[in-house]
Write a protein that binds this DNA or RNA. Structure first.
Lengths: 116, 116
DNA sequence: TTAGTTGGTATACTTTAGTATATCGGTAAC
DNA sequence: GTTACCGATATACTAAAGTATACCAACTAA
């Protein structure tokens, strides 16, 4: 990689944007939760059962953060008792490409490290 | 995002590859170190000075891990005293696209969260 | 002779992420 | 009336990541 290369410059210019992306994508549970919701699980307990190993504390915390990040929405239905449904936003769908890229690089990387 | 969607399936199929990529990319220092090396810094102290805030302990640890990941190589020169040079491998260059994607998603994401 | 550079290591600490487990008020089914 | 489900919260803990600071032997330049 040459010095002052255009791509190098593009890479260096903003690691804070990279950090923003990683805040979402690098946590142990956030992607798994979104995937569980994409798979049709809307309720707290459904998501918890789908993932299997997440504690209610973490699920609660991560759901709140995902909502703050506008990746999911929490809807309260006026039933008795109230029921609550989580759904993924269109913004969450934009994660798909990023996750694919991470995955593909991960596969390539493993081949390089393990000597193909 | 519909259930049983092809893209959804592709996303779910291997979160472990995503984890492999994140092992490299989500640490506080690894990318910064590679960027410092790309910028022409080859020696331990040069890299440390370039980054500015990294402790020698972390730099040492991260350099070792980057070498294990085959992203950099450590060369020992038979001078007096011995001098050591780090350089990035071609494999490290493949990170460029991934980092660009993370960065672009991060920028998009910030716009969404802050309401454009 | 003394101060500084090099490529680190050692020890101890804090901070962040994640785990484990018990509990809650309300409701519904048996 | 008791047991279980729902959507969580509370408290306490462990583990992983990162920080702070001092130090080292070998060498060099003033």
């Amino acid at each position: 990689m040459p010095v002052n290369n255009k791509e190098h410059h593009a890479c260096k210019k903003s690691l804070s944007a990279v950090r923003d992306a990683l805040d979402v994508v690098s946590s142990k549970w956030k992607l798994q939760i979104i995937i569980a919701i994409w798979a049709g699980n809307k309720r707290f307990k459904d998501i918890q059962r789908q993932i299997g190993s997440i504690s209610p504390r973490m699920l609660s915390k991560e759901l709140k953060e995902l909502e703050e990040h506008k990746l999911i929405v929490r809807q309260v239905y006026d039933t008795l008792p109230v029921s609550i449904e989580y759904s993924a936003t269109p913004h969450a769908e934009t994660l798909q490409d990023l996750v694919d890229n991470l995955q593909n690089w991960g596969i390539k990387h493993r081949k390089v490290v393990l000597g193909k």
